[in-house]
Amino acid sequence: MESLNLLTALAHVNVEQGFFYVLAAIAIPLAYGVVFDRNVIRSGFLLIGVFATIAGLFFLLQAQFLGLSQILIYGVGITLVIVIALMLTNARQETGMNPALPANVGLASFVSVLVFTTIYLSLRSAEDWPLKNESSLSLPPNIEMIGKHLMTYYALPFEFASILLLAALVGAVMLSKAEPASLANAGDEAEQAVDGTDRV
C-alpha cells in the first residue's frame, strides 16, 4: 500500500481541520438557502446539498457507514420525496412571495440566536469531556461494530424501529390514498380551463 502512505501522512497534517471548514462553509449557506430561498423547490435541492455536506462531515469523523447511509437515505431518498411533494403541491403559489410569515420573524430570529448562544455557551463551559484516546484507525471497520451492536445490545430498539417504519409506511399510504370521488368532476373543469386559455 505505497499510495496509502501518502494519504495517511496527509491526514496528520491537519487537513481534517481545513476540510471541516470548507464543508461548514458550504453547509451554512446551503442551510440558509433552504430556509430563505423564495423558490421552495430550489430550497428542496439545496437541502440535498446540506445533507451531502453532513455526509462529508461523517466521513471526516470516520463514520463511513453512516455517511453512506446519509447519502443513500437522506440525500437521495427523503429529499427526493420532499421535492416530489413540492412539485405535486402548488409551489407556484408561494414563489415571489416572502417565504417567511412576517409576524414571526423577529421572535424566530431571537429564539434561534438564543438557542445557538445557549448551546455554544454550554459547550464552552463544559470542562471535563470524557474523551478517549484510542485512535479509531486501528479499530475494526465501524460497519462491523454497528452490525454487532444492532444484533446484540440494541436488538430490541432495532425491531421497534422496523415496526415504526412499517407503521409509517402504512400510515402514509392510508393518508395519501386518493378518494375516487374527488376525481369525478375534474373533466368538465379542465374543459373550462382549456377554453379559457390562450391558444397561441
Binding site: 405535486l88 403541491t89 402548488n90 407556484r92 386518493a178 374527488s182 376525481l183 368532476n185 375534474a186 373543469e189 379542465a190 380551463a193 382549456v194 379559457g196 386559455t197 390562450d198
Partner: peptide
Amino acid sequence: MVPEMTEELRANKLKTDEMLI
C-alpha cells in the same frame, strides 16, 4: 402557459395540480 385557477375553483374542484401540455 398553465391557467391559474381562482381560489374558489381551486377549493371546490381542483384536487391536485394539473398541467397543460
